[in-house]
Nucleic acid binder design. Structure first.
Lengths: 319, 319
DNA sequence: ACCGGTCTGGAAAGCGATTGCTAGCGTCGG
DNA sequence: CCGACGCTAGCAATCGCTTTCCAGACCGGT
């Protein structure tokens, strides 16, 4: 049965003080309240089950202590992990997060941004946003994750260096023909890292398959890649690598004996694939922490922060 | 550079009308506005880049059109999928969702619930909540997903029937010793379903391993289960099944030739394990839709809604 | 000419909180 | 004994919006 909400007025009346005093004790603010009065108020709050109305407070204070978070796809484990980390960081600072998916569609993305701004979020986190979400007249801090945008602050992993490290590891195992599964346009860095490693070792470019960032995409990409008979494949995301593994198994190839695989991202599920995947781990925690920090502390710089990746050796590379 | 926000007053002034009129046109409300005036206001809105303040509106209207969503772990693919589905359903109705993880901890859960209530959510979705989050004095609709609670409305898959169907399928393949990997206490239904199937076929109970709902848990559970030499394993969740697969691979067992596996949940990743998992699919979309519907339309009944599962045959069962 | 009805727009009362300013009052130094 | 000061507590304005109620303009019918 929905009871009508108890407001600060009720508390004030019950405790026999003015509403202002209730505010003072609720906020433990700079204002002092006599211990005795304070106790009376606290009792009233308990007795009535009073819960301050954050909406009213937000209106008055001009800040909601809420972040907006937009990912291309909440079902993607990487984004889910990021969202979780951001939630944790935000919660630790007393913020909550409005999370929503844009389904990779620029129009939806734009609409969601507008919706969140309308709701007066105190900051906006855009995970792997589309090229130009037009953020000119936005009056709150915005931070882009995993993609650098011209007009906003951003933080993302060292895609190029990380990819290079992954491919170099494959090279150190003696591989000479290393295929690449890369995501759609607009994310060139991992491809560059792959090229860097190959060039530094004096190797020819291996076969490339461009596809979506999905298991299905990786699966199909691997099938076409196999025609070039690579001895190793570097996948630009976990999801793709998982698709690759499936294609490899179906082709009767043994990993890593017949063909090695290394992936970028390193979400937890890569530890339980068969065989477990060697990955270039994206520092999700760090990215989340830094993103939240910048939003709250108001980092001025449009400078993109690049955080280092970590190579995690498991079985799929042959180690 | 943070510009100061443009309010409805600015728009009114710019358009040379009263603030009330601005409201009328913004809300397309019951009130009529002369087309000419209306145009002037719309022009003003565009010119000034006015965005209505949802906080103020919420305060006035007494509803935030926001849902709170608490999952035990945002990183769990099943919950991520659920969250995504709920977000979609909510968005379609003009709601947004405040999502947060309770980390499976009752205390955290309680704190998060309080936080969300403070923020005046219009409804609360609790995914697989702990036993008793004490929701007595809550004045907004609450719905529990994947667990039925004494005091709140709930919706969840047909755990018992689903599990039974999965196990029966295993039996139809000729299996006689079917192990069970089951989650911690408080979720007895899948275990009952397993028993149902066994009893109906006149089979003895197979070995049981109780563990957490995680890959790691499934992995260890399988190792102990193997001592009983089952010919098939039914896992109560995807995550556990993935751990089981790993243990099986490491033991040199071939799936499904040496041992079959069926899992409950059926998140997308089960399609890309090796071999692909036969699963009892939990109808995530349906659950989400029904949950949101109940929240918005205000379902009175405390009756728990049980939605049917679907058996998806893939390779791990031997089909 | 008057009355009633229709159509528009404006004034103003809140929604529940924060906070600057003010007032009451007990205490203490001169 | 008096004035000043420090400590508490209350008043009232304000945040941006919705909505009720009212006023004025204009119409047609009698």
């Amino acid at each position: 049965m929905p009871k009508d909400p108890v407001t600060r007025n009720d508390v004030a009346e019950y405790a026999g003080v003015s509403t202002a005093v209730v505010s003072y004790v609720v906020n433990e603010g700079p204002r002092k309240v006599a211990p005795e009065t304070r106790e009376r108020v606290l009792d009233a709050i308990r007795a009535l089950g009073y819960r301050p109305n954050a909406t009213a407070r937000a209106l008055r204070m001009g800040t909601t202590r809420t972040f907006g978070l937009i990912t291309p796809d909440g079902g993607n484990p990487l984004f889910a992990e990021l969202a979780k980390a951001i939630d944790r960081e935000a919660a630790a600072r007393g913020y909550v997060v409005l999370q929503t998916s844009a389904d990779g569609d620029p129009v939806t993305e734009r609409a969601k941004i507008a919706e969140l701004l309308t709701r007066q979020v105190s900051g906006l986190v855009l995970v792997a946003p589309t090229a130009d979400p037009s953020l000119d007249d936005v009056e709150v801090p915005v931070i882009a994750i995993n993609r650098v945008l011209p007009t906003v602050s951003s933080v993302r992993p060292a895609y190029r260096d990380g990819a290079r490290a992954g491919v170099e590891h494959l090279i150190s195992h003696g591989h000479r023909v290393i295929g690449l599964v890369i995501g759609g346009a607009g994310h060139p860095e991992r491809e560059l890292g792959w090229r860097d490693a190959l060039a530094a070792a004096g190797l020819q470019e291996g076969p490339i398959a461009r596809t979506t960032f999905s298991r299905e995409g990786g699966y199909r990409a691997a099938q076409t890649l196999l025609e070039a008979e690579p001895t190793a494949i570097f996948a630009s995301s976990d999801l793709q690598a998982i698709g690759v593994l499936r294609a490899l198994h179906e082709a009767g190839l043994r990993v890593p004996d017949d063909i090695a695989v290394v992936a970028f991202d390193g979400t937890p599920e890569t530890e339980y694939t068969w065989p477990p995947l060697t990955v270039v781990r994206q520092p999700v925690e760090l990215v989340a922490r830094e993103a939240v920090r910048r939003l709250i502390d108001g980092e001025e710089s449009m400078e993109a922060l690049t955080v280092p990746t970590e190579l995690i050796l498991r079985r799929s590379c042959g180690c």
